[in-house]
Design a protein around this nucleic acid. Structure first.
Length: 592
RNA sequence: GGCCCCAUAGCUCAGUUGGAUAGAGCAACAGAUUUCUAAUCUGUCGGUCUUUGGUUCGAGUCCAAAUGGGGUCACCA
C-alpha cells in the first residue's frame, strides 16, 4: 500500500518537474509475469500531448523514480510500459508495517450505517440451495461492509403469511393426524415442507379429475376443492379466527425451530427479524401521503396508481380498489419502518434478480415521495442457481435441500480428513468441528466465488471438491502457516518484531506484494458488494504462499534474519487468510 | 412483442475499471516428498473472448445492431 502510494506521489512530481503536467490520479497496474518488475505505469496517454515517443517518456520517468522515490530500485521500458522494480528495503518495510498491524486491511469506522436485508424465507418449506446463495451473500456483504467502516445491521423479513402457508396448514389439518416434529423425527421446517408437497400433490390430482370431467384447466385450477379451502383458511386467518391462528402459530414455531437450527449450522444470524404478518398492513400511510402530494392518482374503481413512464418504467398499482395492500404497498411501509428503526444511511436488499423490476419501481417511488434515504437504497441482485439437470423447481421436487447439502459436504470433508491420518489425536468432537468447518468452507466458497450478478451452475461433485480453487485449499494453506509458526515457537524463535532488510526470493516479493493489496481489495469488494472479489484475493494469497513455501525453506534457513523475515511473512499470510476468509463467513483451522 | 441481465479453453469461472503474448481450477498427461502439513508445488495440452460494425495510439473490456440463453412485464409475493 505505502509502496504504491509512494510511487504515485513520486510520479506526480516527476510529471510536474519534467513535463510540467499536473496529474490528479495516477493509475498503476501490476506488471505482467513475463516482464521484470512489480508495478507498471503506462506512458501511451502522454505521447500525444507531450509530442514525445513513449519510450523516451518511460526512461525519463523511470530515471526520476530511481533517484527520488526511495522505493524504486530499477526500471525497464518496453514499448510504452514503464516497469518498476522495488528495493528490498521497501518490501521489508511494507511487510513490517502490515504484519505488525492487527487491523491491517480493515478501515476505521466511517460514521455511516447500513442495513442489509437477506434470507427472507417462506415458512412453508425448508431452506434450499437458492437460499444458501442468498444467505452467504448477505452475511458476507455485511462483513465486508463492516470491514469498510460501516456500522452494519442485518435484518431478515420472514414471509410468514399468505396463501402458500395456508396450503401447508390445510394439508396438515387434513392429513396430519397430529404429527409433530418429535413424533415424526423430522425437523420442523421439513415437516411443514412435507405437507406443502402433499397439498400440491392432492391439488394436482383434483385438477386432473375436474379436467377429465370436461372443465378447462384454468377453471379447474380455480375451482379445485382444496384451493378453495385454502382461500377460506386465508380469509379466516385475516379475520383472526382463533383456531386458524393457533394452527398457524404452532406450525410457524416448528418452522422457526428448524430454520434456527439451519442458520446456526451455517453460521448466519440477524440483528432484527421482521414478520410479514406484522408488516403486511403497513404502507397505507405512504399511499395517503402520495395521494395528498399528487404523486399517486385514483382510478374510477378506487385503485391507486403511480405513473412512472417519465422514469422509463410503467404505471404501477400501489393499492387495490378494495383498499387492500399489494406487494409494493407492503414494501413501501416496511422500508419506512426499517429506516425509522435503524436511522441508517443506506439499505441493501439481497434479493434474486427476478425482482429487478420491482426494486426499480420501489426506489423510483421512494424518490418521488421525497424520502431522504432513497439514494441510499440498493438492490443486491443475484442470479439463479442452476443444476446440471436444469432449473430448480420446488414443486417438482428438483430442489437441493440446504440441510442435506451441508451434511453431504461435511461427510465429504470427513472422508478425506480421516484418510489423511493427520488428526488422529483429535477427539471425536474436535474432528466433527473440523469437518463441518471444512465442508461449510467448501460450500460457502463454491457459492461465493462467482460474481453475484451472474447465474451460476451448481455441480454437486464440484461443490464437495477439496482441491484446487476451493475453500479447503485456502484453509489448508492457513493450517500450513500455523504449523510452521508452531514449530518456530518450539524452536524458541521470536519473529513478532520488525525484520531487517535481507535478500528476497521473487516468490517472497510476490507474497508481500499480494499482502499489500489487501486494503484496496476490501474497499473494492465493499464498493461493488462483491464477496467474489474477496474470495479471489484469498485464493491468490494462498497460491502465492504455497509457491513461496515450495521454493524456499523457512525453519531450515541458516540465516537468522532471513528466517525472521519469512516467519513474519508466514504470520502475515496466516492473518490475511483468516481475515479474508472471515469476510466470507468461513472459519480456518489450526490443523487439518 | 417492450424493458432488464448474461455470452471468455471440453467443463466451471477470473480478467484490477481501455493496455503488453487473454488467466485459474477441474479433466488429461509428465514430474517433485531422507526436508517446515503432498488437501501442496512445477510443467505439458487446451482460445476466431458468440457475430458484425463503430469509437482510438490501443477493445475481452466502451457504443450500436444481430444471434443465442435467462428474467420480467399480475389487483401473486
Amino acid at each position: 500500500m505505502q509502496i504504491e502510494s509512494l510511487i504515485k506521489t513520486s510520479l506526480q512530481s516527476a510529471l510536474r518537474e519534467i513535463y510540467n503536467v499536473e496529474e490528479q490520479v495516477i493509475a498503476l497496474q501490476p506488471t505482467k509475469k513475463d516482464f521484470e518488475g512489480f508495478y507498471t505505469f503506462v506512458t501511451f496517454p502522454y505521447t500525444k500531448s507531450l509530442r514525445k515517443p513513449p519510450v523516451e517518456i518511460g526512461n525519463a520517468l523511470g530515471q526520476y523514480l530511481v533517484e527520488h522515490s526511495g522505493v524504486v530500485s530499477n526500471f525497464n521500458v518496453v514499448q510504452g510500459f514503464l516497469n518498476l522494480s522495488i528495493a528490498e528495503s521497501a518490501w521489508i518495510e511494507a511487510l513490517n508495517a502490515l504484519a505488525l498491524n492487527p487491523d491491517f486491511g480493515f478501515a476505521p469506522a466511517n460514521g455511516q450505517s447500513v442495513m442489509v436485508e437477506f434470507s427472507s424465507p417462506n415458512t412453508n418449506k425448508p431452506l434450499h440451495l437458492g437460499h444458501l446463495r442468498n444467505n452467504f451473500l448477505g452475511d458476507s456483504v455485511s462483513r465486508i461492509l463492516k470491514a469498510n467502516g460501516f456500522n452494519v445491521s442485518k435484518t431478515c423479513l420472514v414471509n410468514d403469511r399468505g396463501i402458500h402457508i395456508c396450503k401447508s396448514m390445510l394439508a396438515y389439518a387434513k392429513l396430519g393426524n397430529g404429527e409433530t416434529p418429535e413424533s415424526s423425527g423430522l425437523k420442523g421446517d421439513h415437516l411443514i415442507g412435507k405437507y406443502y408437497v402433499l397439498f400440491d400433490k392432492e391439488y394436482k390430482q383434483q385438477i386432473e379429475t375436474l379436467v377429465a370431467e370436461g372443465m378447462s384447466k384454468e377453471e379447474a385450477e380455480k375451482k379445485a376443492p382444496w384451493i378453495l379451502e385454502a382461500q377460506q383458511l386465508l380469509l379466516k386467518w385475516e379475520q383472526g379466527d382463533a383456531e386458524t391462528l393457533a394452527l398457524w402459530k404452532q406450525m410457524n414455531e416448528w418452522v422457526y425451530a428448524g430454520f434456527n437450527d439451519t442458520y446456526q449450522k451455517i453460521g448466519v444470524s440477524f440483528d432484527k427479524t421482521y414478520y410479514e404478518s406484522k408488516t403486511y398492513l403497513l404502507g397505507k400511510d405512504a399511499v395517503d401521503e402520495g395521494l395528498a402530494k399528487g404523486i399517486f392518482y385514483k382510478k374510477p374503481d378506487n385503485s391507486v396508481w403511480i405513473d412512472l413512464t417519465a422514469e422509463g418504467l410503467d404505471e404501477k398499482l400501489v393499492l387495490r380498489g378494495d383498499g387492500t395492500s399489494v406487494y409494493m404497498t407492503q414494501d413501501l411501509g416496511t422500508t419506512d419502518l426499517k429506516f425509522s428503526d435503524f436511522h441508517s444511511n443506506k439499505s441493501i436488499w439481497v434479493v434474486g434478480n427476478e425482482q429487478d423490476y420491482h426494486f426499480q419501481v420501489l426506489f423510483a417511488i421512494l424518490k418521488r415521495l421525497g424520502r431522504t434515504y432513497a439514494d441510499g437504497c440498493y438492490h443486491l441482485s443475484y442470479g439463479m442457481v442452476d443444476l446440471p439437470s436444469g432449473k430448480m423447481k420446488s414443486r417438482e421436487g428438483t430442489v437441493v435441500d440446504a440441510d442435506e447439502l451441508v451434511a453431504e459436504v461435511t461427510a465429504a470433508a470427513a472422508e478425506e480428513g480421516n484418510s489423511k491420518g493427520k488428526i488422529e489425536d483429535f477427539s471425536e468432537a474436535e474432528k466433527q468441528r473440523l469437518f463441518s468447518m471444512l465442508g461449510l468452507g467448501a460450500l460457502k466458497y463454491y457459492l461465493l466465488k462467482v460474481d453475484p450478478q451472474k447465474r451460476m451452475m451448481f455441480n454437486p461433485a464440484e461443490s464437495v471438491e477439496l482441491h484446487g480453487h476451493t475453500g479447503p485449499f485456502i484453509q489448508y494453506t492457513h493450517a500450513r502457516t500455523r504449523s510452521v509458526l508452531r514449530k518456530a515457537v518450539q524452536m524458541g524463535v521470536d519473529w513478532a518484531k520488525p525484520a531487517t532488510a535481507v535478500p528476497l526470493a521473487n516468490s517472497e516479493r510476490e507474497v508481500i506484494f499480494t499482502l499489500t493489496q489487501f486494503p484496496e481489495r476490501i474497499a473494492d469488494a465493499g464498493r461493488n458488494y462483491s464477496p467474489a472479489l474477496i474470495s479471489q484475493y484469498a485464493y491468490e494469497l494462498a497460491k502465492a504462499y504455497n509457491t513461496f513455501y515450495a521454493e524456499v525453506s523457512i525453519l531450515q534457513e541458516p540465516d537468522a534474519e532471513a528466517q525472521h523475515a519469512r516467519l513474519l511473512l508466514s504470520q502475515a499470510v496466516a492473518d490475511g487468510i483468516q481475515k479474508a476468509m472471515g469476510l466470507l463467513g468461513i472459519e480456518v483451522p489450526e490443523r487439518m
